[in-house]
Design a protein around this nucleic acid. Structure first.
Length: 158
DNA sequence: CGAGCATCCTCAG
DNA sequence: CTGAGGATGCTCG
């Protein structure tokens, strides 16, 4: 986990807290963090943060996004290709690492690696990628799988 | 190069 | 059913 002081905001979700980091007025990072170390509400949050909060509110109540805010392009060309494919997975459905590997003409472990490096949780729905036999991993190994399970159940998978 | 990964498949027991 | 082991593509040092 990164230095919490660098977050521009914190969002309280039903399953945990999301650290928000902006870059140049756009969303650069959205990561699960252990606990909030800043006030959840800022006096005059930037418009990017307000838009993001609306978006997350909608997701956690309706399980749907109104629209995805603009993101800062980061990662290698390959990683962006994987992340772009993740954005195509509709709410409520999942794909396996292997399926994506075939579509992108690469290997399943490479897909998993790109998922692990996803800088923007929820909005780039890496939680909709599961393994062929089980649910796969989340945030590194398997310590935070309850979050992935919660998100998938919230979206009606299973 | 070589090692490390959020995998997958096959093949023994 | 379970576990071991090889194949696999990408990234970082």
């Amino acid at each position: 986990m990164h230095d919490p002081e660098l977050f521009d905001g914190v969002y309280e979700a039903p399953v945990g807290w999301l650290g928000i980091r902006l870059e140049g007025g756009k969303l650069g990072e959205l990561d699960w963090i252990e606990r909030p170390r800043q006030s959840l509400r800022q006096r005059h949050p930037q418009s990017a943060i307000r838009q993001l909060i609306r978006c997350l509110d909608s997701y956690f109540t309706n399980a749907s996004f109104p629209k995805i805010p603009s993101l800062v392009p980061s990662g290698t060309a390959f990683q962006r290709r994987v992340w772009r494919a993740l954005l195509q997975i509709p709410c409520g459905s999942v794909k396996t690492y292997g399926q994506l590997a075939v579509e992108l003409k690469t290997g399943s472990r490479a897909v998993g690696q790109a998922c692990r490096l996803n800088p923007i949780a929820i909005l780039i729905p890496c939680h909709r990628v599961v393994a062929a036999a089980d649910m796969g991993g989340y945030m590194g190994a398997s310590g935070h799988l309850h979050i992935k399970r919660w998100l998938l159940e919230h979206e009606g998978v299973y």
